[in-house]
Design a protein around this nucleic acid. Sequence first.
DNA 1: AGGGGGTATGTCAGTCACTGACAAGGAGTG
DNA 2: CACTCCTTGTCAGTGACTGACATACCCCCT
Lengths: 188, 188
Amino acid sequence: MAGSTSGARARLQQSAVELFRARGFDRTTAAEIAARAGVTERTFFRYFPDKREVLFDGQAVLVEALIAAIADAPRELGPLDVLFRAFRAVIPLLENNRPFAKPRQEVISVTPALQERELAKLEALSDALAAALEARTVSQLHASLAARAGMAAFAEATLSWLDASEPGLAERLDSVEAALKDLLRQDL
Amino acid sequence: MAGSTSGARARLQQSAVELFRARGFDRTTAAEIAARAGVTERTFFRYFPDKREVLFDGQAVLVEALIAAIADAPRELGPLDVLFRAFRAVIPLLENNRPFAKPRQEVISVTPALQERELAKLEALSDALAAALEARTVSQLHASLAARAGMAAFAEATLSWLDASEPGLAERLDSVEAALKDLLRQDL
DNA sequence: AGGGGGTATGTCAGTCACTGACAAGGAGTG
DNA sequence: CACTCCTTGTCAGTGACTGACATACCCCCT
């Protein structure tokens, strides 16, 4: 099974974050990460399809939790409300991950190549959310727009919260939700 | 000035699209593109920082046109209305570019590496739009959310229009704008 | 115990994106 | 004609990634 065997995967991820933080992403080679984890460069690329991917792994659980929350939501809610309900449902999950997510985000925020990959992941997440919304009789266009607008707000809240935990995630989600709905009100 | 000299840049771009369409992005090397354009691989990388970038170049004009349109907009409009006004202002620009944009988008749509780069460009565009909105006394949060929601709609309209010119860009913009505002109405 | 199969890893050789350093040619200017 | 700038070529090197093959280890079955 994945990860149950020797923990090489986890060691590689750990080593990668440490080295990226110390020397920067561009100046650390895949071979160095592998060496620190006690394996070969080749093994690194067996676990991760490319050097960036070593930082992007927890997404699956998050996606499934969000999808489940969307499926559970009461029928009468509009798409944006469904989304924000789902976002709030995964708050504990994100709070548990903060210790890992914070250093990771610090590396990403100073590395264009990693920002690119992160955008791709967020796009995939948006697509997944849109698909989940469509399963609720939301038109494809509405689902897509809602998913992307919602994700923008969700990302804004999450990233700023990783920067400073001061106002909690819940309050930040309140803020961005209000701001987003504000927006639409201003432009009738 | 850029491009005035020998046209090597334009030849490289042209060769790149042709080869990418014929063999696919991954199976064409930078050296092949350069050879077809009559230059060396080294020259290719003097014009473009990496292999993907050869497909992403016209953005600057578009950005400036959008920024200008935002600055011009009447004070009383809300951020989303300002944005859609700007989007409509660049319709002719996009229509002129369609012959180039269409084959380009076909290549991008089947190449994950290029999609990633495109997302990064759209993100940069969103940032530029958000900055332009902030210059109009829109709060940073509202500006960011408006820019991203607007860009999602704009991208949706533009990409679907590249697929089929049937309903024109103007009509498609009408549709996505209506859908976006619809969204917020459903979620009061 | 012994054999067999599956999985994780190592080794090696190769391709290709990308970079720095240096040289060469050509156009314009004094 | 000499000087200079700009563009391009050449060469050598690094590092990401891949395919092919070999090896070691674990688990199960007899």
